[in-house]
Design a protein around this nucleic acid. Structure first.
Lengths: 204, 204
DNA sequence: GTGATTATGTACTAGATAGTAGAGAAATCG
DNA sequence: CGATTTCTCTACTATCTAGTACATAATCAC
């Protein structure tokens, strides 16, 4: 689609944009969008403030780039996890991916979207719209996967909507609990109970 | 237990502590603990900064008082809602109380505990401990109510733990979605689906 | 009333923070 | 090479924020 480098004119940037965004993302994730200062972001990324300004247009632009990166990196994982069969395996993979993101490598991370974007959304309607789009999209994706399981006879069709809501609510609960500091093993236990109940719907 | 006024010595305070905390709570709720400035808190409460300091010892003390007030005001409502029978009515009342708190009177409030305390917890381990205690207590309370329903034969005993997790996850989901701006009617619809499914467990 | 005590309100300080100016460095182009 | 363009980096500014000093006002004890 696009050539790798259109050969820009002056001095080339000394940093890799993606890795700068990744480093900034870690800071935003830990401190929150309000708590992360430009100085700490500059230190973490190795860039100086004027370079951050030139590249991202300020703190909000940098946060926005971090949010984009989070959304774009997450989507394929969700798709891949849900592609499995049967439904139980798909949901197990989906939630295990959740835990991978929410519980590590730093402590009390939670979901970047649920944990920090909602905070940022208070002051920025554009962020609000994007959160809404992503969360709505996730709910729809989950719903479609569960509906297809019902079509395959894995689940009573009447329970599709309820099961979707439960899976989505579980996702949100995991994000919040991980942020609050609940241990991964504990979350996996809770998760298992919910999955067992959903599984029971198939057998009934 | 305690006399109303032990007759203090000097000039009496010109404010009512409870109503000051309530006004500060609204600001913290809207702006978050980091985003709320002492100046805005002073303006909202009608007190001046030195009075706030004398009465609460600074911003974190005021936030702590607001958190206490939230916790103390919420507990009786939960107890009262869950006291109903059968389980379905109890849960409906519980969630309707949730929506009362999360959806009004201002826009996008969500849960004070889940929405703002987790943000504050990053910097203050004492807050973290309190959040954990309250959320764990809520899970236990819900679990006890559901277990008693199972004992009455309203629910299969095997499903008690799973149902507890689902109800708790739903509570968290409502808090987050309300904060993100999802409308109350939409939330009530989702809620209904989950309650219907849980109800179905009784009939099966 | 007089003095002690506690609250209020203005005006301040010290520090942090977002954002910027401007000199200098590294690359391309001719 | 010299001119131009783009990035880097030190140093700065203007603003905001938490917290405080101090003078004043209101109440109590006697």
């Amino acid at each position: 689609m696009e050539q790798k480098a259109p050969r820009r004119r002056g001095r080339p940037p000394a940093f890799d944009r993606e890795s700068v965004v990744a480093k900034a993302q870690r800071v935003f994730w830990r401190e929150g969008p309000a708590g992360a200062s430009l100085d700490s972001l500059a230190e973490a990324t190795g860039l100086h403030k004027p370079s951050l300004y030139a590249a991202f247009g300020g703190k909000s632009g940098l946060y926005s780039a971090a949010l984009d990166a989070y959304i774009e990196s997450g989507a394929p994982d969700v798709r891949q996890a849900l592609a499995r069969a049967p439904l139980r395996k798909a949901l197990e993979a989906f939630f295990e991916a959740d835990l991978d993101v929410f519980c590590g490598p730093e402590d009390r991370r939670g979901c970047f979207l649920i944990g920090t974007a909602i905070e940022a959304a208070a002051g920025d309607p554009a962020i609000r719209v994007r959160i809404d789009a992503v969360l709505t999209g996730l709910r729809r994706t989950l719903g479609a996967r569960i509906a297809s399981a019902a079509a395959e006879g894995e689940l009573a069709v009447a329970d599709v909507e309820a099961a979707t809501e439960i899976v989505y609510a579980t996702h949100v609960m995991l994000a919040v609990e991980a942020r609050a500091g609940t241990a991964r093993v504990e979350l996996r236990k809770r998760l298992g109970r919910i999955l067992d109940l959903l599984d029971g719907l198939a057998g009934a």
